[in-house]
């Protein structure tokens, strides 16, 4: 079958199929990823997050174009949109803003539904990143669902996190300053031609100015862009590249990579243990305990302890 060889040889259909298997948690996908994983090392992972409607997809479209015009041979995009909590279905519409990128064989775009994950990404996003890097994509853009405060998973997965804000955030900046602002390596106020952009920049400066940083550490620049026209994209990508160099020179990049390994192993353990535990429970025991919690006979912690205590 040789799906791993096909992916390494640059077969895009094989890559697309592998991504589907990884997303569906098909064990054949995991086996292929295990073969590819040693190759999933050298790339620059750029996370792009921010509230809905700030122009993340349009910005990614321009940034990818810039990368291709500036000597990068293979650039990939993973664009995550939310799944419906009711039907489980999803509309994945980020490609609408990326139509400029069509027809370029150096670009691979994959849309992903969040499938119930809450951190702004999907459970399979990390595996997608590995597969794309192994396939030779040297720059990866990971675009989250429209995110507000708690969707900070992307910072654990990316080397450089770009937080995109829109004009007219005003006091809302205050509301989010404990959230995604803290994970920003580069801050962007997009739609800078609209009223309120300068106020947003000032509010971000005020908010970041309060943060205490050790000497020699990275200080997130605040930039303005008009993604629709491409204005400011060059400066944005220069800042992103400077951050990559900083990660390399300071050793922070390696520290992040190690932290990423720890986070992912821990997440995988949680997932596998929970799955295995559920499989080993006698039929109906989980539902019994749900009922007990529902009737307030037990707290969730008591019910969990009881289930764990009776495990064979």
């Amino acid at each position: 079958m040789g799906l791993a060889e096909d992916v390494l040889a640059g077969d895009r259909l094989a890559l697309a199929r592998l991504l589907t298997r990884l997303e569906d948690e098909d064990s054949r996908g995991e086996a292929v990823l295990a073969e590819l994983y040693p190759h999933a090392r050298h790339a620059h992972r750029i996370g792009v997050t921010g509230p809905p409607g700030t122009g993340k997809s349009t910005l990614v479209n321009q940034a990818v174009r810039w990368c291709r015009q500036n000597g990068m041979e293979r650039v990939a995009v993973i664009a995550v949109d939310p799944s419906s909590p009711f039907s489980g279905g999803a509309i994945l519409g980020d490609r609408i803003r990326m139509r400029d990128l069509a027809g370029d064989p150096g670009i691979f775009i994959r849309s992903m539904a969040s499938r119930g994950a809450l951190g702004g990404l999907a459970r399979g996003t990390a595996a997608f990143v590995d597969a794309l890097i192994a396939a030779g994509y040297e720059r990866l853009f990971i675009e989250t669902v429209g995110a507000g405060q708690a969707e900070v998973d992307v910072a654990r997965m990316a080397d450089t996190t770009v937080v995109v804000e829109g004009p007219g955030m005003g006091d809302e900046i205050q509301a989010i300053k404990a959230g995604i602002l803290e994970i920003a390596d580069v801050l962007v106020v997009n739609k800078a031609d609209l009223p309120g952009a300068q106020a947003a920049v000032q509010a971000l400066h005020a908010s970041l100015g309060l943060a205490k940083r050790p000497a020699g550490s990275w200080s997130p620049p605040i930039l303005t862009t008009i993604a629709e026209s491409g204005e400011g994209i060059e400066a944005l990508m220069e800042a992103v590249n400077r951050h990559r160099d900083h990660l390399h020179d300071s050793g922070e990049g390696e520290a992040r990579d190690r932290a990423r390994a720890a986070t992912r192993l821990e997440m995988e353990l949680h997932h596998c243990l929970a799955e295995r535990f559920r499989r080993e429970l006698a039929d109906g025991r989980f539902e019994d305990e749900v009922q007990a919690v529902f009737e307030r006979r037990k707290t969730p912690a008591q019910a969990a302890a009881d289930l764990i205590g009776e495990r064979p």
Partner: peptide, 13 residues
């Protein structure tokens, strides 16, 4: 409609 039927729908414009 397809989304409401549980499918993941990529819309390209």
């Amino acid at each position: 409609s397809l989304r409401d039927a549980g499918m993941e729908v990529i819309y390209t414009g």
